[in-house]
């Protein structure tokens, strides 16, 4: 972890060459991609050999992907207009719903984790809500909001908020009492106790909850757009399906997949950075 060395001459602490580290990391990263590549090659072969209309080879999907989603001018980062309109629509729904879930989930979770009385009053109810398979709320959401963006936002929020809340409460209730005692003896004000001690101490669990909720949020973003909307990525799949453009369907699927992958990778980055302080076992090697 401590990849610092002390120069014998200047006595200064310096980091080993960053570029070299990055290069080595990339190399080992690429080395681990072969199995993924193999899976994609098998898909390609299956697509070609079977000649199935429904499962086209990956090369044709990617070609179509280029036609539909790329090909914009450089000022648009070579992404097509359709890309910008649909992706921003879907992602802004996701960001609003998930963002709200994060704020509300962490806020309520901290209260639940700190107050025994409130936990006993509302803990069972929260567990009950968490146990509802949240897609079942979709017809209701459409009833309340109609076919509008707020419906998607509401569903994403309602689906992801419970995991965040439960994990936060769990983490906050489990903060090492030594840290609390230590903070008390330093006579820190209440806001410091919560923002700089309790929440960071519970961060590993809170972030675990956020990651699960990220996946749930994406699932709900897509299903709510498949079920009833007039724009967005899911809607593109529906349109392609109803006009039998199977390649378009697949390339929209690939785009959604890529978005999921990018969001998860970004989240992983942030998570590792925030949790640097946590002493972790050799699992990082995985």
């Amino acid at each position: 972890m401590t990849s610092r060395t002390t120069s014998r001459i200047t006595g200064a602490t310096m980091r080993p060459n960053r570029a070299a580290i990055a290069l080595r990391r990339t190399a080992s990263g690429v080395g681990n991609l072969w199995l993924l590549a193999l899976v994609l090659v098998l898909w390609e072969i299956y697509g070609r050999v079977s000649g199935s209309l429904f499962v086209p080879p990956i090369s044709r999907i990617l070609q179509n992907f280029g036609d539909v989603w790329l090909g914009g001018p450089a000022s648009h980062l070579f992404l097509s207009d359709l890309f910008w309109s649909e992706v921003t629509t879907s992602l802004s729904r996701f960001a609003r719903g998930w963002g709200l879930a994060v704020v509300v989930g962490i806020g309520c979770g901290v209260v639940l984790g700190r107050s025994r009385v409130i936990a006993q009053m509302y803990g069972p109810v929260v567990r009950f809500f968490a146990a509802i398979p949240n897609t079942v709320l979709l017809p209701i959401a459409v009833q309340i909001f109609g076919v509008a963006s707020n419906m998607n936002v509401f569903l994403i929020f309602l689906g992801s908020v419970w995991v965040v809340m439960i994990n936060t409460a769990d983490g906050v209730a489990g903060v090492d009492p030594m840290w609390l005692r230590s903070a008390r003896s330093l006579r820190v004000p209440r806001w410091v106790l919560y923002l700089r001690v309790i929440v960071p101490a519970a961060a590993p669990q809170i972030l675990a909850g956020l990651r699960v909720s990220l996946g749930i949020g994406l699932i709900l973003m897509v299903i709510s757009e498949l079920y009833a909307t007039t724009e967005g990525l899911g809607f593109q799949i529906v349109v392609a399906q109803s006009s039998f453009r199977y390649l378009d369907m697949w390339s929209a699927f690939v785009l959604i997949g890529l978005i999921g992958i990018v969001l998860n990778l970004a989240f992983g980055r942030i998570e590792t950075r925030l949790l640097r302080w946590q002493r972790r076992s050799g699992l990082d090697a995985l």
Binding site: R116, A119, Y122, P124, A131, D170, A173, V212, E271
Partner: peptide
């Protein structure tokens, strides 16, 4: 990145898990 921590059930906490006074739960 590894994200083993991600895969965690929604209900493994102990807070409020032990049934407290039933009256409180009912009030909630």
């Amino acid at each position: 990145q590894t994200d083993h921590a991600a895969v965690r059930g929604p209900d493994r906490a102990d807070w409020g898990g032990r049934a407290g006074p039933v009256a409180l739960g009912v009030t909630g």
